[in-house]
Amino acid sequence: MANSSLKIPQPSPRKYLYLPPSVFWSIRQEFPKWLSLLLVGIALIVPLLLWTAISSLNLVPPIFLPTPAAVMNAGIKMFAEDNLTLDVIVSSTRVLAGFIVAGIIGVPMGLAMGTFYSLDSLFAPIVGTVRYMPVTGFVPLIVIWLGLEEPSKILIIMLGVVLYNAIMVADAVKFIPNEMINVAYTLGATRRDVVFKVIIPGAFPSILDTLRVNISGAWNFLVIAELVASQNGLGFKIIQAQRFLQTDKVLFCIALIGVIGLVIDYGLKWISQRLTPWADQIHH
């Protein structure tokens, strides 16, 4: 009878919480175009205003941080007197050549690793080991093997990107659902059909995104590549200006590389949207 007097606490009714609507903090929902443009403007203008204020008030010596106007004047002078246009063309050609070679090698390797467990077991130890080795450590060997001409510079840029292409493409292939492959086999597809009609089309949007992301790595290795007995190029100009403490020229060349990279990024994004319009529909 004593036990019957005990009252077992009953769980309180569950309260359902409703999220209030939010524009700024919405997760993968529609976002106003005007607000997007406003945030882009703030992200670009605020750092520029801070730079202008700090340099104009001489809070930092001009030799370390010249004003934006001084940097622009240095850039105009470099285009007019130092033939900077030729340096832009030379550097862009080197980056493009190294990146194309990295794509020709890295993309098929990534497809093979992501598709076949046998090739993943074969290549993964090599890729996983070599990608931690600094490319700068190979520069003396590359000079010995290829000399000081263009092939050595292209090889340095290629080595900086190729393994990341392979790894990211392999991961993209592994995200293709096994159900798609099994359905293809059920419909009578051969292994060749699965590779060329299921895996490659399924991974194609991710391959384009991989190339768009990794081309920035090619530009990052440009300065290292142009350390090898270069007489022109944006990396060469940066190194040359650094030796004479010409910070305005250094900053302009760095900003110019950033602008070129941004144009390439938006260009590749535009191409990706035209070639794979279904990818955006899936994401949205």
Rank of each mutant, 00 (worst) to 15 (best):
L234A: 08
L35S: 09
L148I: 09
L35W: 08
L268D: 01
Q242C: 02
I260M: 08
V101F: 15
F252W: 03
P47F: 09
S118L: 14
I199T: 10
S4M: 14
V161N: 04
V135E: 07
I27H: 13
I157L: 01
T52H: 12
R243Q: 11
I264T: 02
V194P: 10
V107C: 11
G114H: 02
F79H: 11
N214P: 05
I200S: 08
F99T: 06
K174T: 07
G267C: 11
D280Q: 14
D82S: 15
L251I: 05
N83K: 15
L37H: 14
P177L: 07
I215P: 00
L146C: 03
G75C: 11
V161P: 04
A166S: 07
L268R: 08
I181A: 07
F99D: 08
M168A: 03
M158Q: 07
Q240N: 13
G137Q: 06
K153R: 01
R243D: 06
S12G: 14
P277Y: 03
R14F: 15
V127G: 08
V162P: 00
Y266W: 13
K77L: 06
A166D: 11
S55H: 11
I264R: 07
I126R: 12
G103I: 05
S272Q: 13
W34T: 14
L187W: 00
I100S: 06
L275F: 11
A80N: 15
E179Y: 01
P151C: 01
D280C: 02
A97M: 13
I8R: 15
L262Y: 12
L159G: 01
R192L: 15
F79M: 00
I254D: 10
M109C: 03
A2C: 04
V194H: 06
V259P: 05
V183N: 11
N178S: 15
N165M: 04
F24L: 15
V101Q: 13
G202L: 02
F24D: 01
I156N: 03
L44V: 06
A69S: 14
I260T: 04
W25D: 12
E149D: 14
T190H: 04
K249L: 09
A241W: 09
V250T: 01
Q10I: 13
A70C: 00
K153C: 09
P9W: 09
G128Y: 00
I257Q: 02
L50N: 04
S5E: 13
P177Y: 07
Q10C: 00
I63H: 07
W219I: 03
P21D: 06
P205E: 01
R191A: 02
R131V: 12
L122F: 15
K269T: 02
A43M: 09
V162D: 10
